[in-house]
Design a protein around this nucleic acid. Sequence first.
DNA 1: GTCTATACATCGATAGAC
DNA 2: GTCTATCGATGTATAGAC
Lengths: 207, 207
Amino acid sequence: MEPRHTDPLDSAAPHDPSARQRLLQAAAEIFDRKGYASASVREVVEHAGVTKPVLYYYFGSKQGLLLAILETGARDLALAVAAAGARAGTIRERVGNVCMAVHTLIRARSSEMRVSHATYFTAAELLPTFDFHQLDRTIVGELERLLRQGIESGELRPVSSTDAALAILGVLLLTIDQEVLRRDDRLDEAGLQRVLDLVFDGLRRTP
Amino acid sequence: MEPRHTDPLDSAAPHDPSARQRLLQAAAEIFDRKGYASASVREVVEHAGVTKPVLYYYFGSKQGLLLAILETGARDLALAVAAAGARAGTIRERVGNVCMAVHTLIRARSSEMRVSHATYFTAAELLPTFDFHQLDRTIVGELERLLRQGIESGELRPVSSTDAALAILGVLLLTIDQEVLRRDDRLDEAGLQRVLDLVFDGLRRTP
DNA sequence: GTCTATACATCGATAGAC
DNA sequence: GTCTATCGATGTATAGAC
């Protein structure tokens, strides 16, 4: 009877392979709707169709369940960004690909991503030991790498690649925030592309 | 014995003028550190040096206390943005003033602002009835108004003022997120200005 | 592995005296 | 207005049977 919660990414389950996965999905939905702290494990297990000891068997604690959600989300986001940045094209296109990939992933996995986003910003003292900073560095690092390439090739102006990455990150944060908030006037992919183009082309009138 | 919590912005208190204010400050710090849902009223009143009935006398409930924090924060932020945008100068300077004002206010009142920010993103179902959307519209509206002026005067390119406002909002969100997360590499005012300049001048090399 | 039943703490909020 | 004392509900987690 090994404790399974030592590796929350392992998707195989000893007896009922679906119980663990159902718990993850149910938790994402409930944590999203009521907030992690306000959600009760009773609600989660009922929504997942299991009982409390099942949750504690797989995840060890309520926090372990949250941690598993954060880890899968961060892993998939990092993978999507790396894949999008690696595709061929101009730097502007490749940066656009990264932004679209993030946008798409958040839309596709909204509950998990909203839970991750909320956790990111809520109560450092309460947080489980999860290195959001590493995810940050991965994404910003990928942007900075692309922009530095663009500067060296002459496609972009010779500015600080760090500052440029932050400018792009701003557009990314805008998209993320809007998706997370489910704003009714939120940007679709075309709108995201328009704003991104503004950052590349500038607002100032060139004389 | 009128219930005072009908107007959370009223700063006058019947007997002990400091008790209400001390509760607001203590709550901001505790909600910031542990999260609203995880913080207990016991902790808050102890940290404020009062007893539970005092809290319920002034704010009616734990949620009423949160609401009072959100309202003062939103009011002051809206006032700061309006004042900064009204000052004379080029549009680029005035937009810069707005961003700096937001940046300054968040640094000065970090607990309140972090609590507001976390609430903004956490668990719509749990949220008190607070119209964050109105604050959003105020800030974005002010940006859009300024940018439209800049477009009409010829200082800026003839782009969509809505898209341009979103591009600037991205820089603002970047600043806010960094301050809220207390990142050690977060932008100071000079850095914020550099990123803002990049958005005005563009990343692309102009041929 | 998964169940029933429960232990045990803590929560938000209030009653009633002063 | 502010106190002490407490209520009733709910929380996470676990013991013990199977």
